[in-house]
Design a protein around this nucleic acid. Structure first.
Lengths: 213, 213
DNA sequence: TCCGCTCCCTTTGTATACACTCGAGTGTGT
DNA sequence: ACACACTCGAGTGTATACAAAGGGAGCGGA
């Protein structure tokens, strides 16, 4: 793995996990020494982070970690609703039914995973990730997939702000199952509606349990 | 202006104007010498181009200019319809009516601009650009604006493939005027419908007059 | 005491030198 | 004659040295 990739992954992780808080200045020499690499690959990593919107160049003062305000969260979900709603509709038109039927069945059994003692709920998040991947594959539109992928980075960051209690996750699993069900049934409008519903509930939850930083 | 910005702008222009054709390899030493800068800022420029999707790294063999197939154009417009349709609807909800009324009036007079002998039709394209900018400002959603901005780069490139005859531009101006009219009237669904219509016509025109390369 | 100017220092921007990897081409052995 | 291996080279990846620019602190004047 290239040094610039390592630096990119490390910084991205630090920002998403809120170990590097908004406003933190990422000075080149400081970070390059911390990560044990030179400035050149670090600069490339910072460029990528800035292109993604996780950092921004603060004229002459280095790059700083971007903030996420409540307004940003609203904007984020507005775009998310647009993209994922359409994605779900397209998946319903083009996707393979059996794939999404299996995912639906797994999602209906998800409460068992959520109840387990794994605090990170890796299995459940992996399952949701597989649903996302299945939708991505079904729509076969690289530009749309790319747009959603760039959104997910910010969404993971936002999710870390909210308290992922078992109650909400159980409800979310049912909502995801509804989406998978609609896609499997080949019903685009239903799939879009289910996605809209899920995202509104998700946004409400985030705003309700939002931890100010 | 920084050297890396200069290199980025120059290469971006070359790719969009099809002076650098798909598949062309951009060797670092070669391009840095051509542009009169060193490899370091050039690499940053190439990183940005790759992030935008105009180039792609061909495993150790330098970066190459990406291709745009007919399938890509379909995908591009599918995403464009999603984003710009929603943008028009949001602008209708949140935009200032007088701003878009003025733009509508100007667009209705656009055929005069198109008839002028300026082969580049700078005035007309400037006017359409101002409509885009007005929509961007009206929706006040930086994430959505960012997503559309990253799309427009590819769209400009596609537009260069089509023959922008006066007839199509006149029709497009009328379609744009209809969008502005719907936004000014504060009718989101109408604005979205007008946008959908315009994009379908635009796509048909591109595919009909497509110049294979 | 407050405003403004200047100087210095910190930090980024650029250039260049070095290291390493991948691939092609050639030469040799069977 | 064919196949395998070795060498050479082109090109990227990384490190470091140098240049330039912007900001902050300190000093001086009003």
């Amino acid at each position: 793995m290239r040094a610039s990739d390592k630096a990119y992954a490390a910084l991205r992780e630090d920002i998403i996990e809120w170990r590097l808080l908004p406003g933190a200045v990422l000075a080149e020499v400081e970070q390059s020494e911390r990560l044990g690499i030179s400035r050149t690959p670090l600069r490339e990593a910072l460029s990528r982070l800035t292109a993604e919107g996780l950092t921004t160049t603060a004229g002459g003062r280095g790059v700083v970690v971007t903030d996420i305000s409540l307004a940003d969260i609203d904007e984020l979900f507005e775009l998310r609703e647009t993209l994922e709603g359409r994605a779900a509709a397209l998946a319903a038109e083009r996707g393979d039914a059996t794939t999404f039927e299996k995912l639906r069945d797994e999602l209906l059994k998800a409460p068992e995973l959520i109840g387990a003692d794994d605090p990170a709920r890796h299995d459940y998040y992996g399952l949701v990730g597989r649903l996302d991947a299945a939708i991505d594959a079904a729509i076969s539109n690289s530009y749309l997939v790319q747009a959603m992928r760039s959104l997910r980075v910010h969404l993971v960051r936002v999710r870390r702000l909210a308290a992922d209690d078992a109650e909400r996750l159980t409800a979310a699993a049912a909502e995801h199952a509804a989406i998978a069900e609609a896609i499997a049934a080949g019903n685009p409008r239903l799939a879009e509606a289910a996605t809209t519903l899920h995202l509104h509930r998700s946004l409400s939850h985030v705003k309700a349990t939002h931890i100010p930083h």
